[in-house]
Amino acid sequence: MSTRASASRTPSVSPTASTAPAAEPPVRFADLLAAEWIKVRSLRSTPWTIALTALFVVGSSAATTLAYAVPNSGPRHNFLPFHVYPPAGYWLLMVVAASAGALALVSEYGSGLIRTTTVAVPARGSVVLAKAVVAAALWAAVGAVVATGSFYVSQAILAGKDAGVSITHPGVPRAMAASALVAPVCALIGLGLAALIRHSAATMVTAVFTLVMLPLFFSESKRWSAAVNHATPGSAWKRLVQDWAPDPENLAYTATVPGSWAVYVVWPLVAVALAVVVVRRRDV
């Protein structure tokens, strides 16, 4: 009985409120950029792809210059100082950049890693934006190096034929900028296609068709056909690297420089916006 009494006199200890688990700090966008850069850098194929692409593009510029440059003709009669890349060079650069941009997303869908990514970072839109920033920055650097290398290699050959130009020659800075930026533009287009299709082979085929084949279906003989042709990245690049003014009597069928720059801006913006929307709404 005394035990009961002592027990009754023992003050009841109120249970302490369970300590709630500390909320994890939100993932910073800089952390996402670092994570995406690690993913790209850790791929063994990345440096080899970049190196072989640069070697081929610069080599094609040198080979084309040797084949077509006319001695003592002056820079106006040699197309290469303004085009920077020959057709084989810029087609390859566009396709490789688009494929690399697509692989940044479609490879995670194929391996199932996208599930881990979305669990770690529920903000899917931020993940896509981080991928886009890393892809754009990487291929802008690659494009700048390849464009500069192609220009100086071709000019070294043309200088021996008294037909070279300097990098400050009218039209050359614009051509250099357009040639460097065509790579990140195509990389972001590939990223957008990957978000829509989510299949490696189908994404690559669609990228090749969109960037390389589509302009060939639309000539400049009619206004509507020319408008579609000029709205493609490849045609916009061609216009930006040309050092001539359009014929005032035929403006309806000739792309303008501002319009071509607009193509460079609209395509990647639309591609990234679609990628963000699609990844947010679709189940992984």
Rank of each mutant, 00 (worst) to 15 (best):
residue 241 V to T: 15
residue 196 L to T: 04
residue 127 V to T: 12
residue 189 I to G: 02
residue 258 P to M: 11
residue 212 V to G: 08
residue 182 V to H: 04
residue 258 P to D: 05
residue 247 D to M: 10
residue 204 M to F: 12
residue 225 S to L: 10
residue 125 G to C: 06
residue 203 T to C: 09
residue 192 G to Q: 03
residue 173 P to L: 09
residue 148 T to I: 13
residue 180 A to L: 07
residue 220 E to Q: 10
residue 149 G to D: 03
residue 244 W to E: 07
residue 258 P to H: 08
residue 159 A to M: 11
residue 134 V to A: 05
residue 165 V to A: 15
residue 155 Q to C: 02
residue 245 A to P: 08
residue 199 H to I: 00
residue 226 A to D: 09
residue 166 S to I: 05
residue 166 S to G: 14
residue 265 V to L: 15
residue 234 G to P: 02
residue 171 G to K: 05
residue 237 W to K: 15
residue 130 A to E: 02
residue 151 F to N: 00
residue 205 V to K: 11
residue 194 A to G: 02
residue 139 W to F: 15
residue 194 A to L: 08
residue 183 A to L: 04
residue 238 K to R: 13
residue 247 D to L: 09
residue 192 G to W: 00
residue 154 S to W: 00
residue 124 R to W: 03
residue 124 R to P: 04
residue 229 N to F: 15
residue 219 S to W: 01
residue 192 G to N: 04
residue 245 A to N: 13
residue 149 G to V: 13
residue 122 P to C: 09
residue 255 A to Y: 05
residue 153 V to K: 06
residue 248 P to H: 10
residue 227 A to S: 13
residue 181 L to C: 06
residue 155 Q to K: 05
residue 166 S to T: 15
residue 193 L to A: 04
residue 148 T to A: 14
residue 257 V to T: 05
residue 165 V to P: 03
residue 219 S to F: 04
residue 208 V to R: 05
residue 146 V to W: 03
residue 166 S to V: 10
residue 178 A to T: 00
residue 211 L to F: 01
residue 155 Q to E: 14
residue 187 A to Y: 02
residue 125 G to A: 08
residue 153 V to E: 06
residue 239 R to H: 08
residue 214 L to C: 09
residue 207 A to E: 07
residue 170 P to S: 07
residue 243 D to T: 06
residue 238 K to Q: 13
residue 259 G to W: 02
residue 209 F to Q: 12
residue 196 L to V: 12
residue 261 W to S: 09
residue 165 V to Q: 04
residue 249 E to L: 11
residue 131 K to Y: 05
residue 254 T to V: 10
residue 216 L to K: 10
residue 203 T to G: 05
residue 220 E to D: 13
residue 249 E to D: 12
residue 228 V to R: 10
residue 241 V to Y: 06
residue 246 P to C: 07
residue 155 Q to A: 01
residue 206 T to V: 14
residue 261 W to K: 03
residue 226 A to L: 11
residue 221 S to P: 09
residue 258 P to F: 10
residue 264 Y to M: 07
residue 158 L to T: 10
residue 239 R to N: 10
residue 192 G to K: 02
residue 195 A to T: 02
residue 162 D to F: 11
residue 180 A to W: 08
residue 199 H to R: 15
residue 154 S to E: 10
residue 225 S to K: 04
residue 145 V to N: 00
residue 152 Y to T: 15
residue 195 A to N: 03
residue 212 V to N: 08
residue 213 M to D: 13
residue 184 P to Y: 03
residue 170 P to F: 02
residue 130 A to L: 05
residue 252 A to W: 09
residue 229 N to A: 14
residue 161 K to V: 00
residue 268 P to N: 07
residue 245 A to M: 12
residue 253 Y to M: 15
residue 268 P to G: 03
residue 234 G to I: 02
residue 142 V to E: 00
residue 260 S to F: 09
residue 126 S to V: 00
residue 133 V to R: 08
residue 151 F to E: 00
residue 156 A to Q: 14
residue 261 W to T: 01
residue 157 I to F: 08
residue 248 P to D: 10
residue 162 D to H: 14
residue 249 E to R: 11
residue 126 S to N: 14
residue 136 A to S: 09
residue 234 G to F: 06
residue 250 N to W: 11
residue 136 A to K: 06
residue 138 L to H: 00
residue 206 T to W: 04
residue 127 V to E: 07
residue 194 A to P: 00
residue 269 L to Y: 10
residue 127 V to G: 14
residue 241 V to M: 14
residue 221 S to K: 06
residue 195 A to Y: 05
residue 263 V to T: 12
residue 147 A to P: 01
residue 129 L to R: 09
residue 192 G to S: 06
residue 242 Q to P: 03
residue 145 V to I: 13
residue 132 A to D: 08
